[in-house]
């Protein structure tokens, strides 16, 4: 795994039935323990300045695709700190060859943290948390990526 949250390996266009329907990338969990999917708060993908809302994004964990709505109710499927999740973004035509600026935000709940750090505002996946704690990582991560 790469140290950055957004991984280079796994970044490519998605081809379905001969048609490019979007792109995918992988993220690792920058926390010290794995989380159940319902603990995740997926945010917005920003690719070259274009925002793509969470409704057009799937998470693939343990080989299975999950919508944001499905994740919200799933407290049995566990995402490991050792295995990146695949983020699949719907975007007909995909991405062109060359550089792309990618930003993605996600956060997660933690049952032992004080409630003030667990409300919707504190956990907004598209904004940084009030206090940065290295073992929780950043909500929002950015990386310049290359499609071949």
């Amino acid at each position: 795994m790469e140290k950055q949250v957004i991984q280079t390996v796994g970044f490519r266009n998605i081809v379905e039935n001969g048609e490019v329907t979007g792109f995918q990338f992988k993220v690792r969990l920058p926390y010290y323990r794995g989380v159940f999917l319902s603990q995740l708060r997926p945010g917005t993908v920003i690719i070259d300045g274009e925002s793509i809302s969470k409704e057009n994004v799937l998470w693939n964990v343990k080989g299975e695709d999950f919508t944001a709505e499905e994740m919200k109710h799933d407290f049995k499927t566990h995402w490991s700190v050792q295995v990146p999740a695949v983020i699949k973004v719907k975007k007909p035509g995909g991405l062109s060859q060359g550089y792309h600026d990618l930003t993605y935000g996600f956060s997660f709940t933690s049952s032992y943290m004080p409630p003030i750090m667990q409300n919707d505002e504190a956990l907004d996946p598209d904004k940084e948390s009030m206090i940065f704690m290295p073992e929780f990582g950043h909500h929002v991560n950015s990386r310049r990526m290359i499609i071949v």
Binding site: R33, S38, Q39, R41, K72, F75, T109, S111, Y112
Partner: peptide, 13 residues
């Protein structure tokens, strides 16, 4: 281990 009874955001286990 964690007793994660806050694991769902909208209700406690």
């Amino acid at each position: 281990n964690w007793i994660d009874s806050h694991v769902l955001g909208y209700r406690d286990l």
